[in-house]
Nucleic acid binder design. Structure first.
Lengths: 341, 341
DNA sequence: AAAATTTACGTAAACGATTAAGTTAACTGT
DNA sequence: ACAGTTAACTTAATCGTTTACGTAAATTTT
């Protein structure tokens, strides 16, 4: 559609395309006069640089990719928000890919991206990701920053939260609230965050001398109905827990529904803590005690680290790793005295 | 870093780059033998096409952009999910931009995108968008599909839900539950969805002969604290409403908190309906009556419409417009008999 | 068997921007 | 005044693919 290019500007002003190009990026080789003229004409004709021509030539796409398991989760939504904010502000574009917890998707996406479509990647691995060769290979070509769910044996920036401590703290909180039979609900045994949280959980169980047979880890799945059944069975079993520590936000609904259906009172009969960033935690009945992760901050930090590396043309940026602490928000779902709100 | 390109493949096989290129896209001009050889070598050397070279040459980026106000909202999250699903499946990439309800951002992003970075755009306008010239101009260059918040006077595909009816239905439901003083909480007076919902609201008020002075529209803002105060004042005012219809999900928290703080019982003293896709609606206290929009479906439909247009090189695709109905989920926040769950 | 067509390639010019290297002309210092 | 420098450009190659067009051999047609 006869787009206005650098060539057209050059013809109109009787200069070379080189001059236009340099004028547009404010090169010192160009006089102020010509710069003015170029800028003016560019504005007049509404010149917009062709991103692909530029990317091809400079081998820089000004684009980053974000790989997350899903977006229908407050944590990832907020993190994406943080990432996009920093990226846009620095003139970068953000490609979004959802792996839906499928390792195959992760592999396929990374492979395609290594063609040069992006300058770098920010990712949180899938729950299935138990081998890391594909990520290793990829990271030799392009900078990768991990957030939350990291790839352990890779020497790059990892933006995480204090999962171990939170696992410990949440468990300790449950114990101090009187729980003796605590179940940790997990979703994967390969995820870094899961093992961290579990280790914190286990340590608390030991430190406080709880019966290790009463305190176990139960693995949930991706399907809400399945999880609902699982939790119901758990709560109907012979050794019913009096404390639940859920490691993913989406289990909240299933826990509340299951307990409600079985007429098990939270927090009287079972106390609940959830790793969750849901705004609605505060208006649940009872309001939910949560570990809230600094999702937005983590996203911003990850993006900042990546863009810094891009600026410096460096691949490895392990020193940019950061642990941003989460917060334990104590609410009614773990209160000792019975109350509704 | 010495990437493997078509040129390299050509040298290795002693053919021209044209042959490689054609072989890779399975052209009939190339013999099966050579195709095999090319494919094999490509796999062996892990050839990945350079997206930008291809985009530049073909003037096609295989990329779409999604402009949404925010992602920390169940509706937009789910819609994005649907869009990305369709896009990925068809080999398209998805750029995400959040406007944060700022018209200026919307303008700036669209301007940059018109440089050719994407083949088309799927968007939901900001709450500030009250003039549409920038969108008009843009849509002359690239295909645009709207979802949810549409640009009224533009002849293109619009994927919406039955906002008018839902406004009517929700209001009717409140009236039938006994409400006589209903307030609609809005966030903008320019948004298509808001006017649709308000019109439905107003029609129901008229149809059922409610006092129009007792039933009004109150405009909320972007700030949660401000909204909380606003709702508290509303509930403390002389003419306290006995029914609230909230048009955006995020107001739920403020409504519940305000009522809780003022010890106003939902649903006994005030009944609440919310346009919301939050999964937690069902576990709130009381569980929340919602209008849930078919967010994921809308996203998928919007993406499908756009990709269809891209295939046909068409700009206008008004005939792809679609209205996918929302559902009214009646729960305890509007029940006549008092109950907690 | 000559002409026409098809098959299977190769040549080279794009796409639009960037940039190393070259070219003037003007200016600087001694 | 003359070598050396600087300012302000231009030329042309380049990024990696795609594709219109050219071509030679093989095949088919008549």
């Amino acid at each position: 559609m006869g787009n206005v290019t650098i060539k057209l500007l050059a013809e109109r002003l009787n200069v070379s395309t080189a001059t236009i190009s340099k004028a547009l990026c404010d090169s010192h080789e160009i006089s102020e006069q010509t710069k003015q003229k170029v800028l003016e004409l560019a504005r007049e004709l509404n010149y917009i640089p062709n991103a692909y021509a530029s990317s091809l030539r400079r081998n820089r796409s000004q684009t980053i990719a974000v790989l997350i398991p899903e977006v229908a989760d407050s944590f990832f939504s907020l993190a994406l928000n943080g990432i996009e904010e920093v990226a846009l502000q620095r003139g970068y574009h953000t490609l979004i890919y959802m792996t839906h917890e499928k390792l195959e998707r992760e592999k396929a996406i990374l492979k395609e991206l290594s063609g040069g479509r992006v300058d770098g990647v920010i990712m949180s691995v899938t729950a299935e990701t138990d081998s890391f060769e594909h990520i290793h290979n990829f990271s030799r070509q392009l900078p990768v920053v991990f957030f939350d769910r990291v790839c352990p044996d890779l020497n790059t920036a990892k933006i995480t939260t204090n999962d171990f401590e939170c696992g410990y703290l949440a468990t300790k909180h449950l114990i101090e609230a009187g729980c003796r039979k605590i179940v940790l609900l997990a979703v994967s045994n390969s995820l870094s965050i899961m093992s961290e949280r579990s280790m914190g959980f286990n340590k608390a169980i030991k430190d406080f001398d709880l019966n290790e047979n009463d305190c176990r880890i139960v693995y949930c799945g991706e399907d809400a109905v399945y999880n609902y059944q699982l939790i119901k069975e758990l709560m109907q079993g012979t050794n019913r827990p009096d404390g639940i520590l859920a490691t993913v936000e989406k289990l909240t609904t299933e826990i509340y529904l299951a307990c409600n259906h079985l007429s098990i009172n939270i927090p009287r009969q079972v106390k609940v803590v959830c790793f969750s960033n849901q705004a609605s935690a505060v208006i649940l009945n009872p309001s939910l005690t949560t570990i809230t992760q600094p999702a937005f901050e983590m996203g911003k930090t990850a993006a900042t680290a990546l863009l810094k590396a891009l600026k410096n043309n460096s691949l490895v940026l392990a020193e940019e790793s950061m642990v941003i602490p989460s917060a334990l928000n104590i609410r009614s779902s773990t209160s000792v005295a019975v109350q509704t709100y």
